[in-house]
Amino acid sequence: MTTLGFLYPGHFAEDDFPRTEILLDAVRLVVNHTDVDEDDYGTDTLMRTGTPERLAAGVAELQRAGVESVVWVSSSGSFLYGWEGAHEQTAALARAAGVPASSTSFAFVHAVRELDAARVAVAATYPEPVAALFAAFLHSAGIEVTATRAAGLASAAEAAAWDLDEVKDLVMAADRPEADVMLLPDTALHTVAHVTELERLLGKPVLTGNQVSVREGLRLADRRAWSPRLGRIFAEREAPPAPVAQWGAGRERAHTGRKGWSGRQTHSGR
């Protein structure tokens, strides 16, 4: 059993995690909720959710659970620190937790790379200035953003109250034919139950905040898990067969294997 730890700000769409755990084999997801001063999408408020002190205060429960990695489940609470600042944030979290650590913002970067995507579209619930900073973070990772659609919601509670039709409207407005992947960064948005339907609607992979956060926790723990109900990023893919290896007198053995992770890059100093 692989045990993964997640720090989640407040109480909005955290039920995405038990839903995900049911769909994965032999993976335990432990969620600890961090404090939130106010529920609004102002940049200062969002950045305060991700201070080193606040994150460090949340790791004790995860340590007691024996987690093998920790992910800070907040896109805005990480990308608003900028590329270098977000690295420093996760490095501090790794030191506090004593295991590899990352954040949802880096989870998006790694998931886009795993899908070998060159261009993405962003469907954000945030106000436009916050959504633009997420696009800038992706640019820092060398990812081209073809379009960004900002819904302009004022709080995480508003995002958590959205239904599937509202999510569909947002992704349809954000989509562009040249985009290889659609990104929905808000971890307060309920998406895990709808990923496959959104992918059918758009005809392309869809990456969402809580979904990629789990994928990131698995990556850090060197664990692979698959479930097509969690979208194409969790769809099992076979690697091309390796050349047949000759061994023994007239005997052959073919070496095949499943495609693993692209390079092992963490944000924990490991």
Results as ranks from 00 to 15, higher is better:
Met1Cys: 10
Met1Ser: 06
Thr2Met: 11
Thr2Arg: 09
Tyr8Ala: 05
Gly10Ile: 07
Phe12Thr: 15
Glu14Ser: 13
Asp15Asn: 13
Thr20Phe: 13
Leu23Glu: 15
Leu24Glu: 10
Arg28Glu: 15
Val31Leu: 00
Asp35Thr: 04
Asp35Phe: 11
Val36Arg: 03
Asp37Asn: 06
Asp39Glu: 04
Gly42Phe: 12
Gly42Pro: 01
Met47Tyr: 02
Arg48Glu: 13
Arg48Pro: 02
Gly50Pro: 03
Leu55Gln: 11
Gly58Leu: 07
Ala60Pro: 00
Leu62Lys: 00
Leu62Ala: 12
Gln63Ile: 14
Val70Arg: 03
Val73Ser: 14
Ser75Asn: 15
Ser76Met: 04
Ser76Arg: 04
Leu80Lys: 02
Leu80His: 07
Thr90Trp: 01
Ala91Ile: 12
Gly98Ala: 03
Val99Ile: 04
Pro100Tyr: 08
Pro100Met: 10
Ala101Glu: 07
Ala101Asn: 08
Ser103Lys: 01
Thr104Arg: 04
Phe106Lys: 00
Phe106His: 10
Phe108Val: 05
Val109Ala: 14
Val109Gln: 08
Arg113Tyr: 13
Glu114Ile: 08
Leu115Tyr: 10
Ala117Asn: 08
Val120His: 03
Ala123Val: 01
Ala124Gly: 07
Tyr126His: 08
Tyr126Pro: 00
Pro127Cys: 05
Glu128Ser: 11
Pro129Asp: 14
Pro129Gly: 11
Ala131Leu: 08
Ala132Met: 06
Ala135Ile: 03
Phe137Val: 00
Leu138Val: 02
Leu138Ala: 07
Ser140Ile: 05
Ala141Ile: 06
Gly142Asp: 01
Gly142His: 04
Gly142Pro: 01
Glu144Asn: 02
Ala147Tyr: 15
Thr148Asp: 06
Thr148Arg: 05
Gly152Ser: 05
Leu153Val: 02
Leu153Gly: 02
Ala154Arg: 12
Ala156Gly: 08
Ala156Pro: 00
Ala159Gly: 07
Ala161Arg: 06
Trp162Gln: 09
Asp163Ile: 03
Val167Trp: 09
Val167His: 03
Lys168Tyr: 07
Ala173Leu: 08
Ala174Trp: 08
Arg176Ser: 12
Arg176Val: 15
Leu184Asp: 10
Thr187Lys: 00
Ala188Cys: 06
Ala193His: 12
Val195His: 11
Val195Gln: 13
Thr196Trp: 10
Glu199Lys: 02
Arg200Leu: 03
Leu201Ile: 08
Leu202Asn: 09
Val206Trp: 12
Val206Ile: 06
Thr208Ser: 09
Gly209Trp: 02
Val214Gly: 02
Val214Cys: 10
Val214Trp: 11
Arg215Gln: 09
Glu216Gly: 07
Arg219Leu: 11
Arg219His: 15
Asp222Leu: 07
Arg223Phe: 02
Arg223Ile: 03
Arg224Ala: 15
Arg224Val: 05
Trp226Phe: 15
Arg229Thr: 12
Ile233Gly: 04
Phe234Ile: 07
Phe234Val: 04
Ala235Tyr: 01
Glu236Arg: 05
Glu236Ala: 13
Val244Trp: 14
Ala245Ser: 10
Gly248Phe: 03
Ala249Lys: 01
His255Glu: 15
Thr256Gly: 12
Thr256Glu: 13
Trp261Phe: 14
Ser262Gln: 13
Gly263Thr: 13
Arg264Pro: 06
Arg264Ile: 04
Arg264Gly: 05
Gln265Phe: 13
Thr266Asn: 09
Ser268Pro: 06
Gly269Cys: 03
